[in-house]
Computed example of a mutant assay.
Amino acid sequence: MASSYTTLCLILILSQSLPSSSSSQETSFLDQKPTAYEILGDYNFPKGMLPKGVVGYSLDTTTGRFSAFLNGSCSFSLEGSYQLSYKSSVNGYISQGRLSRLEGVSVKVFFMWVDIVEVLRNGDDLEFSVGIAGAGFPIDNFEECPQCGCGLNCGGAKRKASKIRSNPFVSSS
């Protein structure tokens, strides 16, 4: 009787120490790195802040320093009012509701390109700063990720009209 009890205990101990196929799948699922779009959500920003096609990112959670990497530079128009340009690497600092010291994102204002240097979340609006001027937009304008080359109007599909105004970057903030 003692022998069978000892055998049973050994089987239980061994079965607990050996990884089962379901627990290793759960572990690998939990170990997956979130996407750059999911990281934006963690900091209270919509995924449409970045265009489709981000191939990687880095984030230092202690300082907030981040980089998002695209497969080359990217530009597109939004609603016929704005031309945006992303370099192959977008860098800056991220914290709850704030992207600061941005590098790699530009908007065309009249005839010149200016860098977007900061984005703040203010309730249901996003406020973009180009240094001396800024503009605010409803956050629901950024629910979808734009696509390089065609923005939100790709493949002949027109996006429903949004609340993007013609160039508000001309007024100072």
Rank of each mutant, 00 (worst) to 15 (best):
S20F: 00
K108A: 02
S28I: 11
G41W: 04
C145L: 03
T7S: 15
E38F: 05
D60R: 02
A2V: 15
M49W: 00
Y43H: 04
Y43V: 09
L10Q: 11
C145S: 00
Q32Y: 07
F76V: 02
V170I: 15
E127F: 14
L40C: 06
D60Y: 05
V170E: 13
S171W: 13
I39W: 08
C150D: 01
E38Q: 07
S28R: 06
G123K: 06
L84M: 05
L102Y: 02
G149K: 01
S58V: 12
V54N: 00
S17H: 13
G136I: 12
F111N: 05
E143S: 08
N71F: 00
R165G: 14
S21P: 04
W113L: 01
V109Q: 01
G80Y: 09
P51E: 01
N153V: 03
M112F: 07
M112V: 07
T63G: 10
N167M: 09
T63M: 09
V114G: 03
K47F: 00
N44T: 04
E79C: 12
T62D: 15
S172C: 11
I164N: 07
G123W: 04
G149C: 01
V54C: 00
T62C: 15
Y86R: 01
V90G: 04
V130L: 05
N71H: 08
A161R: 13
P138Q: 07
F110D: 13
F66H: 08
D140F: 09
Y93A: 12
P146C: 00
Y82L: 02
R65M: 13
R159P: 02
F110V: 14
S15I: 08
G53N: 04
G156K: 08
Y5G: 15
G123I: 06
C154I: 02
L14N: 10
C74S: 00
S106C: 05
D124N: 13
R101I: 11
F45Q: 06
F137D: 06
N167A: 10
Q25G: 05
S89E: 12
I164V: 08
G104M: 05
A157C: 13
K33I: 13
A133Q: 06
A2M: 14
Y37S: 01
D42E: 12
V55C: 11
C145D: 03
I164M: 10
S129Q: 06
K158L: 11
F169Y: 06
P19T: 03
L8A: 15
